[in-house]
Amino acid sequence: MKKVIERSMIVPNMHLLVIEAPEIASKVKPGQFVIVRGGDEGERIPLSIADYDAEKGTISIVFMEVGASTAALARLEAGDAVATCVGPLGNATTIDTFGNVMLVGGCYGIGSLYPVARELKAKGNKVSVVLEARSSYLIYWLNKYVPLVEKVYTITRDGSLGQKGHISRLPDVIHSMPRKPDRIIVNGCTYLMAHTSEVTKDLDIPVVVNLNPIMIDGTGMCGVCRVTVAGQMKFACVDGPEFDGHDIDWKEFLARRKAYVTEEAIFFRRSDAPAHNEGKCVWHE
């Protein structure tokens, strides 16, 4: 049981959850995640750690309300308890001196890339970010990114902010930059990571993604998080979640993520939460 310090909606359907978890806060590195249960009978779901404060002993999570578990979390208020919050799990995002690094974030990834940007900058990298969303009102934390990075680019489906279109316009953004990035780090929904990997294939830039398969234990015990990376079976919770985006078998990955779509919707219809989006990213698909 861990205490909720704050829960608020930052943009429609996207919530910030601040949890008191001193042990995790003192340990976490950018790119790691926790496994959370909203209620006592609930399933276990992985969520990235979007920020942390070792001194205050808190961690922050940004999550999108998509189904039963995230809906339960969205109903929590300050003072409530999170039934399970265990971590920090997974390997940290590789932080090194790369030179120019481009971060690509969408959905919850805008949140979870934030500590990555901070650490990369501390290592002396020049960091730029591309934030992608359906519309400008879904972009958040601009105020946190602007002072931190060289430049913030935005891509919106409706053209209300920055480049019009979706992530397939990323090469245009890259070509408009004064210098080609030495590394791209992508975080967000599966669609965003798969497409970024796809459209950057010919650019000769390493692309790393923070994979988000279905998980249960997060310690390498159950094997549900397995993915094919460069032809080999990997467990995302212990071998990842960071992988080379160009090595992932995305077709298999997308199919595996949707394994429980029907069942989740069936449960959801029984509960009192709003409509279920059947496994799709409400921002993208």
Binding site: G39, E41, S69, I216, A259, Y260, E263, F267
Partner: peptide, 14 residues
């Protein structure tokens, strides 16, 4: 995760 109680429990089971 009490999947055997699905759909009473929220753990999805095929």
């Amino acid at each position: 995760m009490k999947g055997y109680l699905y759909p009473k429990s929220s753990t999805p089971v095929k």
